[in-house]
Amino acid sequence: MDLDLLVGALTAGSLYALVAMGFNILYRPTNVFNFAQGDLVMLGAMFGATFITLLGLPWFVGAALAMLAVAALALVEEKIAVAPVLKNSASSHGWVITTLAVSMIFANLVGLGWGPDPIAVRPPAPLSTDTFELFGANISSYQIAVMVITVVLVLGVEAFYGTRSGKAVLAVAEDRDAALLRGINPNRLSSWSFFLGGGVAALTGVLAAPVLYASTGLGPSLLLKGFAAAAVGGIGNNRGALLAGYIIGLVEAVAAALLSPGYQLAATFAVMLAILLVRPHGLFGRAEARAV
C-alpha cells in the first residue's frame, strides 16, 4: 500500500494513543477507568473551538484555556464521583456507575451549550493542514506536529514516572493503604492525576479538532479506540499505548483500503484479540505478582 496510508494511520494512531494516555494517567493512582474520558476529549475540542475560532484567541492561549477548563471539570469529577467511591472501598466497582453518570451529565449539558454544528479549528501558524510531499507521502505540517507532540508527551510523562513524585503515583497504584503508611497522600495524587488527565484529554481534543472537527459527537468513537489502545498497550503503560495506538491506526487504515466497514471492525478486533492472547497484559504490561 502507499505511504499516504501510513501518514493517516500514524496521525489517527497518535490521537488514539493520546486518549489512551489520558486514561492511563487517571488509572495509575486510582485504578479507575474513567467512562467520561471521551466526553472530556470532546469538551476539550469544544472549548478549544470556542476560544480559538469563536472568540478568536491565539491558538496557544485558547488551547491552554481549554486544557485548564477541562482539567478543572475533571477535578470536579474526581471530587464528586471518584474520591467518595474510593473512600468507601478501594476495590468497589461503584466508579463504573459514577463515571458513567458523569458522562451522562456531560453529554446532556453540551447540548445546552453548543449546537450540533461542527466547528472548524485552524492549526496554529505556521502549521497548516495543507499537504506537501515528503519521501513520497503526502503529509501536512500539522500531522507532523501531532505525531511529534504525542511522542514528546509520552516520553515526558514516562520520564515523570521515573521521578520521586512519579514513583509515589506508582506506589499508590500498587497499594493505597501501604502508600499512606509511607507518607504519600493518595487523595492528593488522585486529584492531581485527574487534573492532569483532564488536561491531556483536552489537549487531545484540541489537537484532534483540525482533523476530526470539533463537534459534540466527537467523544464516543475516540473513547472506544482509546480504551483499545490503552488495553493493547498494557493498562497504565504509555509507551505501550503509543505503540498500540499506531498498531490500531495502521490496522484500521489497511482494513479501510481493503475491506467493507463490517469486516474492518472484525479485522481490528481480531488483531486486538491476537495481541492480547499472546500478551495477556498488553504489549508492555507486566503480570501482577503471583498470588500464591
Binding site: 464528586i80 464521583a81 467518595p84 467511591v85 468507601n88 472501598s89 468497589s92 461503584g94 456507575i97 459514577t98 458513567l100 453518570a101 458523569v102 451522562m104 451529565i105 453529554a107 446532556n108 449539558l109
Partner: peptide, 16 residues
C-alpha cells in the same frame, strides 16, 4: 437525563 445522571451519581455515593 441530566437530572437522572445526577440522581445516579448521588445514589452510588450514598449506596455504594
Amino acid at each position: 437525563m441530566l437530572i437522572y445522571g445526577v440522581a445516579l451519581l448521588l445514589l452510588m455515593l450514598y449506596a455504594p
